[in-house]
Amino acid sequence: MEIVEVVRAGGKPFKRAYVSIFLWFTGRAIQAAAKVDEQVRREFNSLPDDFTFSLGVLPDGPWMVIGREKGQVKYLGGDPEGRHLHVRLAMKNIETAFLILSFRESTALATARNRLITEGEVPQALAMIRVMDIVEVYLLPKMIARLAVKRYPSWTPGRKFFGRIGIYSRAMLGI
């Protein structure tokens, strides 16, 4: 019957680009934070030696992969294909990713609104969420970070200042 029109889902290139860049930068920032921040280092040390984590968007990306290699935390690019992932945090669709990554919804609220699908062991997933919260506090101005985390931490000005410089410069340079 001709009366049924077949519609193929289109793309959302602008939002995809934003999310890709954001994930790329966050991946590098996590790698940097593991070197700069004591608490982030401790969280990673509690995880398995070959720990691999991916954050991204259903059904087919973009993704970013973080992993431990020989004790070092490394950003492993944007392709989780073929890797064994310990934890995968998947945002249900590109609009959701855009909502969360433009800080209009905190990770906690997004979780409460079933916007994320967590795969893997809960303790490891929680450790990664704590890591991402810390990184967000470093990267974002307080006004925005307050929206992204449940409770804005009361760090010493030194930790925040030097940490922020360290993480930004390392993330830019990719070291």
Binding site: T111, V122, P123, A125
Partner: peptide
């Protein structure tokens, strides 16, 4: 308790 998921949904951190 840090290993348990229920903390995610608590209003305060």
């Amino acid at each position: 308790a840090l290993l348990d998921g229920a903390s995610m949904y608590n209003p305060e951190d």
